[in-house]
Design a protein around this nucleic acid. Structure first.
Lengths: 363, 363
DNA sequence: CTGAAAGCGCTTACAG
DNA sequence: CTGAAAGCGCTTACAG
């Protein structure tokens, strides 16, 4: 706290409002208003507004006086009041995700942020914490705060409640998962093709009993990745054993348990395909405990996947790019409310790791 | 898009505003207003306001009529207008972080969110993307959107520009790093003690040449962790060799390079202490390439640290709890603007991994 | 180049 | 139990 005597801080804290110039009422919020700045500078509020918004046609000397008053009074623009007067929000967009934790969402958000910033938009992120009811609340909360557009990473369900917002001009774009029961722009990765490629990689090594471990099917990405798994089997002329498809585990321990069970069946799984990196780590830990090797391919890459032993082959996606694409779609939608809906599908990339692939054991 | 004929969507899109009842002007935003709801329900706007805000003293039949009008017109509350009229923002707090990516911030944010939600506060997160100038802009952008309080994870610098906001009643709390040149509430982990414990662990194994790899000292956590490293040496009566202290690397490749150099000096480092998990992973990768073992302790835990070979001993912190504490401080500050400043310091925990510790090589 | 008036969509502080 | 008036802090659409 170098250079700041205590007493200054104390004084500041006990007089929360800067005293306005005589005659102009002190604002409710305790902060100076445009009217006070105007009075201090000896101009009208409209002129202050011009200076703040960088509108042309204010002579330099006047602008200077206004700037000085702004600095002196510690004026801060009230963005909320401005957007109310304008009838629309300026330069703010929202992102609604399930939960902030998790590398995938974090990277997606940083892609959105990158593009938002490049276009002068302030990004506000709100999390619905994996609760479908909260998802709706969170979106509406953001909308009621007058953002210009919203990117949603939906969990599931029915998005028809958004029709009211869409109709009243809110721009909405979906990312990672498509909207359900309404039409809207969206950006996804090619989940079906990615899963198909990953599972085909296992089939080519000779595996015929490949476990699929994923989330509940209500989440669209799960359904698509399972579809990719099925397609790969169909392409290879191999039947899927429904007993090897496990939907539900979401954390490491439950995935470990599921994998252990599948790998110790009388007719065991010799390989596994996992639907996200958390499940992949769980499966990997289970395999490590088994007395026989089980091949593993996971959807989504993760730190250290290349250096653990055995290393893990993954279907990598690019969440940052997904975020960028979603934000571009949103900007387009904000500019053209009646444009046709666009859908961006990003490719995945199979990253093969481990020189010694694990073939199925001979019987 | 089951059940939704195209034509409906098209119609909705081409008529962005719901037609208001005759006589009430159509609002600028294209969405129905309280006045329109009032007219439709045959009541005054004040009564609609009462129903929406759950104020008592509205007879059930009237409330019902209002509810019906709200549903029919697709009315959405304008939170921005409400907070302008109220003179303060209701139920919204902000969190400003450097970047969303990274497990630490993500977990911190989820701790904040957890407590915010429990107290009926909507959390809005904004990222300043590791740019100190943007940090200021981001905080002010959030403040101008009339949030009730802000939690800041500062990068560095001088926070005196926040005095204006503090004076006008904005509640501000710092998390993970303390404020600079102003007084404010903050929640931190005990970086000095944590680093001291981690480095002492290495000293006890007999290491005398322990590298420190960290970020620039402008970031307070760096300086504190280096201080802990120094204290541990002092306690053990071992001199610190300044050549073993490297500040600067922020990514995996530059950390690998730094560690490799230190471990191949004529009088090499036999152990290393790294300041965050990214640096730890970089150092680990470098050590893996060397022909001699180097002991490693890292600040902050990470996924798979226990299963890589060799496993990594860490000084674990609890970012979720840190976020919770920060949010509690913020709630307290919002409720009591003139309360004394509080500082929460969370302990760290040494997690020793690997049965075979790596002692310094004999000469 | 500058300003007075009206209004954005809501709530407060009063009345009745 | 319900409502008319005034105002939150800003901007729009005009004037001069």
């Amino acid at each position: 706290m170098a250079g700041i005597p205590d007493s200054v801080t104390m004084t500041a804290l006990s007089h929360p409002a800067a005293p306005g110039p005589a005659g102009t009422p002190r604002p409710r919020t305790g902060r100076p208003t445009m009217a006070q700045v105007a009075e201090a500078a000896g101009v009208s509020p409209k002129t202050v507004s011009r200076v703040i918004n960088g509108e042309p046609g204010v002579v330099a000397t006047t602008a200077e006086r206004v700037e000085r008053a702004i600095a002196q009074l510690g004026y801060r623009h009230n963005h909320a009041a401005a957007s109310l007067a304008r009838g629309r929000t300026q330069d703010t967009v929202g992102l609604v995700i399930e939960g902030i934790a998790g590398r995938f969402y974090a990277e997606l958000a940083s892609g959105v942020e990158e593009v938002a910033r490049a276009h002068g938009q302030q990004l506000l992120i709100a999390s619905s914490e994996e609760n479908p009811d909260r998802e709706r609340e969170t979106i509406l909360a953001l909308a009621s705060r007058q953002v210009g557009g919203i990117i949603v990473v939906p969990r599931s369900g029915d998005h028809r409640y958004l029709r009211t917002e869409l109709r009243s001009g809110l721009a909405v774009v979906f990312a990672d998962r498509p909207p359900q029961r309404i039409k809207a722009d969206y950006a996804l990765v090619d989940n079906v093709a990615g899963a198909r490629e990953g599972v085909t990689h296992l089939l080519r090594q000779g595996h015929r009993r490949i476990a699929f471990i994923g989330n509940e099917l209500a989440v669209a990405t799960s359904a698509d990745r399972l579809e990719g798994y099925r397609q790969a089997h169909r392409d290879a002329g191999v039947d899927v054993d429904p007993a090897l498809v496990v939907l539900g585990p979401t954390d490491v321990p439950s995935t470990e348990a599921a994998l252990t069970r599948l790998a110790t069946l009388p007719d065991p799984a010799t390989a596994a395909f996992t639907q996200n990196s958390r499940l992949t780590m769980g499966a990997w830990r289970a395999i490590k405990q088994l007395d026989r090797p089980v091949a593993l391919v996971g959807f989504d890459d993760f730190d250290l996947a290349d250096v653990i032993d055995p290393p893990v082959t993954v279907v990598a996606q690019d969440p940052v790019e997904l975020g960028r694409r979603a934000m571009h779609l949103l900007l387009r939608r904000i500019a053209h409310h009646n444009a046709r809906h666009h859908h961006d599908i990003l490719p995945t990339r199979l990253v093969v790791r481990g020189s010694g692939e694990i073939p199925p054991p001979r019987r």
